[in-house]
């Protein structure tokens, strides 16, 4: 890779790694797995940077690499192992206790979703993708995404304590 393309890649990471890492942490439910997932996608992007930079939306392309890697991990796990969910510490909690409790409750609720359901919910409501875009990223049909999201939202409603937010989320962007 030339110095100029190295510089382009570095600029890309500086511009987009923050949001990609947030998505990675949410879909994996684990900050360390999230970092590893992003790193995996960036390594692939680095290896085929000319293709990535030609894409209409390079960040979306790398997000696709990331979700493919995530679901590929899941496919391997489903045929060989049981997915073991972890409940890592959030690290130093300087926030106000109420905000900490709110985040912790949401984190634990997300972790109780199956990995594919969690992925669909995060892509739909954190990355604000449409059903079609989410289906495309996850390599499944729109109806499967719809099913995942419905199940995920029902589970979250049951898991999250009523009070601070009226969480009865709805389908969001349709196409």
């Amino acid at each position: 890779m030339t110095h100029s393309t190295d510089a382009e890649f570095t600029d890309f990471v500086a511009d987009h790694a923050g949001h990609l890492l947030r998505t990675a942490c949410l879909v994996t439910g684990d900050r360390h797995l999230g970092e590893d997932l992003l790193q995996t996608a960036l390594a692939k992007a680095y290896g085929s940077w000319p293709r990535v930079r030609r894409a209409d939306h390079p960040a979306a392309y790398v997000r696709r690499l990331m979700i493919n890697a995530h679901l590929s991990w899941l496919r391997r796990l489903t045929s060989t192992e049981t997915v073991l969910e972890t409940f890592p510490d959030l690290g130093s909690g300087e926030d106000h206790p109420t905000r900490y409790a709110d985040s912790e409750e949401m984190r634990l609720a997300l972790l109780r979703l199956s990995p594919r359901v969690r992925t669909a919910v995060v892509l739909r409501y954190f990355d604000d993708l449409s059903e079609t875009e989410t289906a495309d990223l996850m390599g499944c049909s729109r109806s499967t995404v719809n099913n995942h999201v419905s199940r995920g939202l029902a589970a979250l409603r049951a898991l999250l304590a009523p009070g601070t937010d009226d969480l009865t989320p709805t389908p969001g962007r349709q196409q």
């Binding site: 790694a17 949410l26 959030l90 905000r99 709110d102 949401m106 604000d128 969480l167 709805t170 389908p171």
Partner: peptide, 24 residues
Amino acid sequence: MNDHDTTALRDRLDRLADRFTPQV
């Protein structure tokens, strides 16, 4: 469709990501 509900979930995911995600 209920914008308030959708916004509530998005806000909670955002807040979780704020807390959960390490610095880049």
